[in-house]
């Protein structure tokens, strides 16, 4: 029997008849484990599938586990000899070298203070080492990474909500952008930075983002509209 995609699964259940790629391989993501006989669910959540052969369990999460290549938002907590210490919400703080910024040289140090918010990419992430961040892409350009300045507001969201927001077909940020202009940076470590035209707009956007967790994609437009209309009633 083919596994029921998009349904709630519990630990101890097993699934079989998984789809494979050309080489007969299947990729098991978080929440799934193979024993001799079958593939078992090891955490409660919703079974998801991505073509051609990836399966995983999606469940509400709050703790971020650093993964290479993730774009994250961190807070500078310390300045040391040649690197910054950044809190990215993982079990360990990440380090960010002074040289990992666009145009940085030994003489020309980046202007980063303790308490700044940084949008960066994880260059090194494995379970035995301290994660390392960089603020540039492979060509040495900043490409949007770096210190986030000029106010705005950073909120925390559960990780599953962030992953949903970052999905290409998620209507939330698009609908919000149609209603009011704003800037945002979404870190997959459960942090979103937003900035609207005014303080009250920024708060509204932040609240809409965090409240939309249980809103389905089809209801999203109505939800966002009603909240923005409620705001315009305030003025």
């Amino acid at each position: 029997m083919a596994p029921k995609l998009g349904t709630l699964m519990f630990p101890g259940e097993s699934i079989d008849d998984l789809k494979t790629d050309k080489n007969g391989k299947t990729i098991l993501g978080p929440g799934l484990r193979r024993t001799y006989a079958a593939i078992h669910i090891i955490k409660a959540g919703i079974l998801q599938f991505k073509e051609p052969n990836e399966y995983w369990i999606e469940s509400p999460e709050k703790r971020y586990i650093a993964t290479k290549g993730d774009s994250v938002i961190g807070i500078v907590t310390q300045r040391t000899g040649d690197a910054f210490r950044i809190d990215i919400g993982a079990s360990e703080q990440a380090s960010l070298s002074y040289m990992a910024f666009e145009g940085a040289t030994k003489k020309n140090r980046p202007d980063v203070k303790v308490g700044d918010i940084i949008y960066a990419r994880l260059q090194v992430a494995n379970k035995d080492m301290e994660p390392e961040l960089v603020c540039m892409d492979s060509t040495g350009r900043s490409n949007g990474y770096g210190v986030i300045r000029d106010g705005g507001f950073m909120i925390k969201c559960p990780l599953h909500h962030i992953r949903r927001i970052l999905r290409p077909n998620c209507p939330l940020l698009k609908t919000l952008g149609d209603m009011m202009p704003y800037e945002t940076a979404v870190g997959i470590n459960g942090r979103i930075w937003v900035k609207g035209r005014s303080t009250i707009e920024t708060i509204t956007i932040a609240n809409i983002i965090s409240d939309s967790e249980h809103c389905s994609d089809s209801d999203m437009k109505t939800f966002v509209k009603s909240r923005v209309h409620a705001l315009s009633g305030l003025h």
Partner: peptide, 10 residues
């Protein structure tokens, strides 16, 4: 004009 300024950094 100017309504779609919602900029998304990813």
């Amino acid at each position: 004009p100017g309504r779609e300024r919602g900029k998304v950094k990813r």
